[in-house]
Design a binder for these strands. Structure first.
Lengths: 228, 228
DNA sequence: ACATTTATATGACAAATATCATTTTTTTAA
DNA sequence: TTAAAAAAATGATATTTGTCATATAAATGT
């Protein structure tokens, strides 16, 4: 079992406030997991008795809507934690987590984490801040969904993927989502999403080859998204 | 200046975890304010150096969208706190707060509150839980905006207003929102909102007289909203 | 009490988006 | 490697929603 003390991604999460002693305690009780692309880490409604620390990979957090479609609420990547909200609320998780690529995650039991809350103020402050950041993002997201057109939202999501997760050597977006997944981030029908991608391609804003998407005219995309 | 110790609404917020001593300290440094209907408590982008505790009244939290329209993110009422998120994030507030009716609020400076975070674990846990609840609500809200029709969302908001804020003796909803405000909760054009209200009236699901709205057929509204 | 402003309501139409059907392309697995 | 399945793409069309114009009702200030 690998040592948390030597784990680099820890530095990017709330866990960075933990002392060496605390990290050793985690090392002892954590469990490491390999999650294959498409596999579920946890499902909406489940009781997850702890948090997951993402060592590598990206996953989507989805929520089932009344019409049976999944909506992607958020993408989470290495260095971030999963399940903090439901642990604190003492509720089942309200979102499902599904791997978008092969992942390495570590599970830390609730009992351990809750102990740190009491003893390590910096740690609980970090967790609070990260949840507060999520809340701000959620507010922004809400207003976008309420007020922007599908086209604007598609442009915005493409830019978000570009800025947050970067691109491969061939300039294509690193995170590869299916059209269906893209649509469910934007909150639209798959066909509408595909159509708009085709439009963007015709306007030479993007390039499409298979699942790969290359952003060709970022400033025009920004204009369309009204993100500036 | 009134004593926090004797204030009843405190019992409904995270502040209920505070000790008598802590409450006395707050009584000394807090400032009480009367806010008239329509007045602004704080505005998006402002630095609010503390939190507001709502003693009486209701306000809306709004966010300006890219097209210049306000979107109502949340309604907040007596017993609840305002400004916790931005205080913890150490950021300007991301939402504006505007009174929907005459309000009484108390302002507690940041320095004071932050002190409690360190010393009173139950208090910080309460704040965390309340923010976590907001985050869960925001997720739900997002998925609704993304996947439900305007009609469904209108029905849902009417039921929400009914269930959360209750009704007057004449059965009309206690919170009176303008059509414009209703539309900006739902995320639609004012005209669309008005039209759908007229439809609901024709279907005898609601009754309209001026700004007053009476829910006549709650179970049908529930079916429409797909809330069940 | 009346004029003026503001909010609500409705019609006509345009634009955006969803749905269903079908074809083409890509992926998967035997 | 090829057949079957899944995903992507596109057309045709229906539905939803927004916009603009205008009318009516309600609220406000003088």
């Amino acid at each position: 079992m690998s040592k948390c003390e030597q784990c680099i991604v820890r530095e990017f999460s709330s866990l960075k406030a933990l002392t060496k002693d605390e990290l050793l305690k985690i090392s002892d009780c954590k469990t490491s997991h390999i999650i294959k692309k498409g596999e579920v880490i946890f499902e909406e409604g489940e009781n997850v008795n702890g948090i997951y620390c993402i060592k590598d990979g990206i996953c989507k957090l989805t929520k089932l809507s009344a019409n049976g479609k999944d909506h992607i609420v958020k993408l989470v990547t290495k260095g971030e934690l999963l399940g903090q909200r439901s642990m604190i609320s003492e509720e089942p998780v309200n979102l499902s987590a599904v791997a978008l690529e092969d992942m390495q995650v570590c599970f830390i039991p609730k009992t351990e984490v809750m102990g740190f809350f009491d003893k390590n103020n910096q740690f609980s402050m970090n967790v609070m801040k990260s949840i507060c950041g999520d809340l701000r993002d959620a507010d922004d997201h809400m207003v976008n969904l309420a007020q922007k057109t599908v086209k604007e939202r598609l442009a915005e999501v493409l830019l978000y993927l570009h800025d947050t997760f970067g691109k491969n050597e061939d300039n294509s977006l690193k995170v590869q989502l299916s059209r269906d997944e893209l649509a469910s981030m934007i909150g639209t029908a798959t066909e509408s999403c595909i159509r708009l991608l085709s439009d963007f391609k015709k306007l030479e804003l993007i390039e499409l080859s298979g699942k790969k998407i290359v952003l060709k005219d970022i400033s025009k995309l920004k204009k369309i998204s009204r993100t500036v």
